[in-house]
Design a protein around this nucleic acid. Structure first.
Lengths: 111, 111
DNA sequence: CTTCAGGTACGATTCAAGTCGTACCTGAAG
DNA sequence: CTTCAGGTACGACTTGAATCGTACCTGAAG
């Protein structure tokens, strides 16, 4: 029952180019914006984002995010979980998640 | 003699998607990394970056950076100047330039 | 004036990326 | 067992972006 975590790069190995390429796509940025705005960092289902694209394309986008080191994907066989790698991102690229959070619909307010 | 400043978006109109798309390219990110690391924010020539690409392609890349609102281009007719829009970027996307500066060859040292 | 370096405009080419169709796998629920 | 929803693998298509060739413009220096 315990899903296995699909591999991604180590925290130190995160590449800014890969991160920017990942965030250049609107759908992926939408996912990251919502993940950054959710401070609970709870594991979420892949279809909790209501992306207006086919499931094959969703698979592709989540894979890109994982290979960029931005999320963890937990494979349960017939479903999949997604979790933001907040600590690793914050350590390697401090401030990046704040930029994304500021793009959240209700998240532009400075604190 | 006074070059005219080629237009770009206003500070408030900077789009994070366009910025990420601009920074996704290695050559453009190389330019921005060096601009971010140079705290003098002086105007620089376009060929002061030693990009290993043709001049037509350089024109294309600098245009993308300008249209994303990251740089100003000053047209003198037969040459061109480039200046980082540090204040506007810092206002709209605080911390972004620090991320780029950290990628600078000698700029990874935390303060 | 002519020459020349820096830059642009336009088009063509090449390549990467987003998208989806078809087929298949996986685990849970009947 | 069968059924079904969620997900993946593979291939094909399409679009956008990076690159460059050719031609032309601009201003400065002879």
């Amino acid at each position: 029952m315990a899903g296995k975590n699909l591999g991604g790069p180590e925290a130190d190995a995160l590449d800014l180019g890969a991160v920017f390429r990942a965030l250049a796509d609107e759908h992926r940025r939408s996912v990251m914006t919502r993940l950054a705005a959710d401070r609970s960092d709870s594991e979420r289902g892949c279809n909790s984002f209501d992306l207006p694209i086919s499931k094959q394309t969703q698979t592709h986008h989540f894979r890109v995010l994982r290979e960029a080191g931005l999320i963890d994907e937990i494979d349960y066989g017939n479903r999949k979980g997604v979790r933001l790698r907040r600590a690793d991102i914050e350590k390697r690229f401090p401030g990046l998640l704040a930029l994304l959070e500021a793009e959240s619909p209700g998240g532009a307010a400075p604190r």
